[in-house]
């Protein structure tokens, strides 16, 4: 119990540091709106307009919802990039040398990207949906919020797993997070229904974050029953948990390899 308590304390402190960093140094209100929010809103509108081109309102709705949810999970991948920042700041060796798993601290540091994702996603949804005559089930907002948090967190687990690898070769950080985002955009049912893809792609999609959670959210929008929604949400949680276990298993190993070859100390510059 005391071990768990200790981990939670570390997580909490790291999250606090991360929030302070994000609010002060990474974003101001103005740069958040102009540099991030406007882009995300436009991205959702861009895909919704593709639905218009196709000519059916059902397509508009499918593309709009999928991409609005995608916005939130995108934010999670910032942790993959931020890890290298930790290394450049020289704090990573200290974390590795501390008695807590560095993973816990890193997860805490990036945790501010989860609420950031939620806010961006909901904001984009609220602005773009009326423009394209998509009605939102506002009465089910708490359920939507819960599901959105679920997919964002499960994606965050995947992003943390990737962060471990990026730590070994920091030059790839942007490429790794970018490709991970694109894979999810293309293969998790965000814009393209999975039925289009061959069997093997569909099978891979089952173990990616977002796939099941997004399905649950679509069911929520369509007014499906709780059991269907909860079933898919459960699968999403399972996938997220799987990625968390993978991160824990690989991270110590990667950090040790970094200690052996010295790559943990040096900065990217």
């Amino acid at each position: 119990m005391s071990r768990l308590g200790h981990m939670l304390r570390v997580l909490g402190w790291a999250a606090l540091v991360g929030f302070r960093d994000t609010l002060g140094a990474v974003y101001t209100v103005q740069s958040w709106v102009l540099g991030l929010f406007v882009r995300m809103v436009a991205q959702v509108a861009f895909f919704a307009s593709l639905g218009q081109l196709l000519g059916r309102q059902a397509d508009v709705e499918f593309l709009l919802i999928g991409n609005a949810i995608m916005v939130s999970t995108s934010s999670s991948f910032t942790v993959t990039v931020a890890t290298v920042g930790e290394r450049d700041a020289g704090t990573l060796p200290l974390l590795v040398a501390s008695p807590t798993s560095p993973l816990v601290a890193l997860m805490g540091r990036g945790a501010s990207f989860v609420p950031n994702g939620l806010i961006t996603s909901l904001g984009a949804l609220a602005i773009v949906a009326p423009l394209y005559d998509v009605s939102l089930p506002w009465a089910r907002l708490p359920a939507l919020l819960a599901l959105l948090t679920l997919v964002t967190v499960s994606t965050y687990m995947t992003a943390t797993f990737l962060a471990g690898f990026v730590l070994r070769s920091p030059g790839t950080r942007r490429t790794v997070s970018n490709v991970a985002r694109l894979v999810m955009m293309a293969f998790c049912g965000v814009s393209v229904p999975l039925s289009v893809y061959p069997e093997v792609v569909r099978a891979v999609a089952q173990v990616l974050p977002l796939t099941h959670g997004l399905k649950a959210i679509r069911e929520l929008f369509a007014g499906a029953g709780a059991s269907d929604i909860l079933g898919d949400a459960g699968l999403e949680a399972l996938v997220g948990g799987g990625w968390l276990l993978l991160s824990l298993a690989t991270f110590r190993w990667l950090a040790d390899a970094g200690r052996r070859d010295g790559s943990i100390v040096f900065s990217t510059a």
Partner: peptide, 26 residues
């Protein structure tokens, strides 16, 4: 590299959407 890697994914997405909707004309 990012910009160049992004291209095929978007091609997959747009072509996939068009195919799913059965709109080869697009």
């Amino acid at each position: 590299l990012n910009e160049i890697l992004t291209n095929p994914f978007f091609a997959v997405i747009f072509l996939g959407v068009v195919r799913a909707a059965g709109r080869r004309d697009l």
